[in-house]
């Protein structure tokens, strides 16, 4: 539970921490999109340098990012090996019947690997430098056009906000219940799969009961404080677009343009 980095906020006060969540979200989505524009090593080099630059800018150590990739490493390696095995073209290095490893396969494998890691790194940058609540505000703002199609954007974002608000409590409670049951002699991470599943009951039941109780309490609190989902609500949280946010978007546009140019003039590899 403690190893998962993706989705956590790391308090700090870097340039990136101060960026508007909308700018960060748009830039990150943009970046992931243009990963697919790069088709040669010059393009990838540029993207990798940019990623490293952004990570540096966050003021958070490289070790943290690498820990973020670790849980996903098998998924990445699996995809990469599929790419290597099933792409043909160029010099063939290995040919054992159905298994062939070709030049294009290898190059593609490397590209896919880089793409994966960059996607993880960039999303980690966003979550590490943005408070969850700001992220929700950003998502709310970006989804707001959907209101035209009668999507309950505000309700969704209020739900998200409340869920985020109670995640630390839930983690705390899990820890407490686990401690209490360990004190009564349970050991976790031992025995067969069935036994381990059985050991989860004394953890999950209490959490379930307390979450229900909490949900009831919350519903009462919200009602007493005048929450009605059908009524229009104003918002106390205001996002402020600053010059640095525009700068971030302009940088992304510049990066995109450069990539498109490199696609025209750089070395060209087929997939």
């Amino acid at each position: 539970m403690n190893k998962l980095i993706l989705g956590r906020y790391f308090p700090g006060d870097s340039w990136l921490h101060k960026l508007d969540p909308r700018a960060k979200l748009v830039a990150a989505i943009g970046f992931i999109a243009i990963l697919f524009v790069a088709i040669n090593w010059q393009g990838y080099l540029l993207l990798i340098l940019f990623t490293l630059f952004v990570m540096r800018l966050s003021g958070i150590s490289l070790k943290m990012y690498i820990r973020g990739v670790r849980p996903l490493i098998w998924l990445i390696l699996f995809t990469v090996s599929l790419q290597i095995l099933f792409t043909a073209g160029g010099t063939v290095y290995v040919d054992w019947g159905p298994i062939t490893i070709s030049q294009y396969g290898l190059i593609n494998g490397v590209f896919i690997f880089c793409r994966f890691v960059m996607i993880i790194f960039i999303s980690t940058v966003v979550t590490l430098t943005t408070k969850p609540i700001d992220l929700t505000d950003g998502i709310n703002a970006l989804l707001s056009p959907l209101r035209l199609f009668k999507v309950p954007v505000d309700d969704i974002s209020l739900m998200l906000t409340i869920a985020l608000r109670f995640i630390p409590n839930l983690l705390d409670e899990t820890q407490k219940v686990m401690d209490a049951q360990r004190a009564r002699g349970t050991t976790f991470g031992e025995g067969s799969l069935v036994e381990q599943m059985k050991k989860l009951v004394p953890i999950i039941m209490p959490l379930f009961v307390s979450s229900l109780k909490r949900a009831e309490d919350m519903a009462d609190v919200m009602e007493v404080r005048g929450y009605q989902s059908s009524k229009p609500r104003s918002s106390f949280r205001k996002l402020a677009w600053k010059r640095k946010d525009t700068l971030a978007i302009v940088t992304m546009l510049a990066l995109t343009t450069t990539l498109v140019l490199l696609r025209q003039f750089g070395t060209y590899y087929m997939y």
Binding site: I133, T161, I162, Y227
Partner: peptide, 24 residues
């Protein structure tokens, strides 16, 4: 614990006002 709805102190105080559609 269960009656603190906002993410920060000021957000929590504002919750009722938001419900009342009070201007920012």
């Amino acid at each position: 614990e269960n009656q603190f709805i906002g993410t920060t102190v000021q957000d929590d105080v504002a919750f009722g006002l938001e419900n009342n559609n009070t201007p920012y």
